[in-house]
Nucleic acid binder design. Sequence first.
DNA 1: CGCCTCTTTGAGCTCAATCAAGGTGTGTGG
DNA 2: CCACACACCTTGATTGAGCTCAAAGAGGCG
Lengths: 230, 230
Amino acid sequence: MTDLFKGIVIELAQFPLFKGIANEKIALMCEGGIVKIHKHRDLLFQHGEPAQYFGIVLSGAYKLSRVSPIGEESVIYFSSPGDVVAALVMPQEKPLYPVSVRAMGPSRILLVHRSVYLNQWIKSPDLIMQIQSLLSLRMSRFQNQRLMQRAPMSSKIAAMLMQLVAKDDHGDLEVLLPLTRKEIADTLGVTVESVIRVMSDWVKQGLIVTSEQQIKIIKPDQLVHLIDQE
Amino acid sequence: MTDLFKGIVIELAQFPLFKGIANEKIALMCEGGIVKIHKHRDLLFQHGEPAQYFGIVLSGAYKLSRVSPIGEESVIYFSSPGDVVAALVMPQEKPLYPVSVRAMGPSRILLVHRSVYLNQWIKSPDLIMQIQSLLSLRMSRFQNQRLMQRAPMSSKIAAMLMQLVAKDDHGDLEVLLPLTRKEIADTLGVTVESVIRVMSDWVKQGLIVTSEQQIKIIKPDQLVHLIDQE
DNA sequence: CGCCTCTTTGAGCTCAATCAAGGTGTGTGG
DNA sequence: CCACACACCTTGATTGAGCTCAAAGAGGCG
């Protein structure tokens, strides 16, 4: 095992995905893995292409999306470090990537070959349980968005931001991803202009501050209040 | 093994979920299973309750839904025979049902205890692969609906119907579920009235026929054409 | 320095929501 | 057996939230 690879294993061991799994086993689970480094907007997988590899996000973030028949981008999910992409389709006989995957800012991902998933991952109950947990989270986010379908747009945006939020070093609430208004719009199925109108208001009212695609939540209570408004 | 139980195993063996799995092993996988019989609208699981059992749909159909803060029902998925419900949350320490589950018309489901999932299912690569396939299908349906978010309502309804369609005995295309207009509306996040207006037009134009909540597609080409309209 | 992405603002319009009212069929309890 | 509730379907009139279109400024990058 190279030193480089050892480092990766240590990095992986910190993710919940590999919680309670020995480093030796982690190494086995990533046999032949390749670390790919991306810059902003680099394409990793293309929707519909044969899927030979699945990925484990190491750092940065990736956007999972598809393009609608009308030519609009529709964002399916944002994958953060520790998340797996394309794992679910690996068992299929001739898997195709179910979504396009693009880096959001500088990011790193570990690519592992399909055969390793079939030979190692599937046979490891620990890992399967963790994968199902990740999927479970993804599903529940889908459902939460579905619940907001009929709500006014401001509620949808508020709900989305609060779902992606975490505390930063200063104890402030902050959205971890570098999100553009367009990406918010594409996630919620609304137009950029509408998102801008709502969020500009919030900035003016001091509910949030934004700079360089980083969004900080100043008054979370008011945002939460907006969610189940009406 | 009782004769009754043998019958269930034979029934299960026909589902893709258990493809290539010996009857003895199927029996093992359903140890302590209980067949529950439901009539229309009976509640099986309630969203948020502790989840001790997961289910395999035997016959009929079940509606997976949640209620939004505003009090509207939001339909997440329709489960047909051979589908599993609540399997994904079983690995969690204290799982809660992620959705409410209700019978649509007379239906039967096999309930299996969580411990069996943890001790048997998780350790069976064959089954895990099949479960992941089912999930994969569910995910791709989610995504397809997401793609239609910005499309006109008629396109959404057309897409939904075509996704649920199959050939019946006479070779006609037919939606397998007993769907009400309200359920279509709750699935798409639109109002009943809007759904009725669109579908009434289609009936008048002879694209579909409906009776007793059964929907037959007479001119599938025209419906498909409506989907990627504009 | 031109191209591209991202953001912003305004004016007008449209699609689907809302509200209202009525019809039908089924189950249920007196 | 009737009446009453309830779920489902239908139609019309009105309204407004969010879309479209248009135009423009501000960075960043090759």
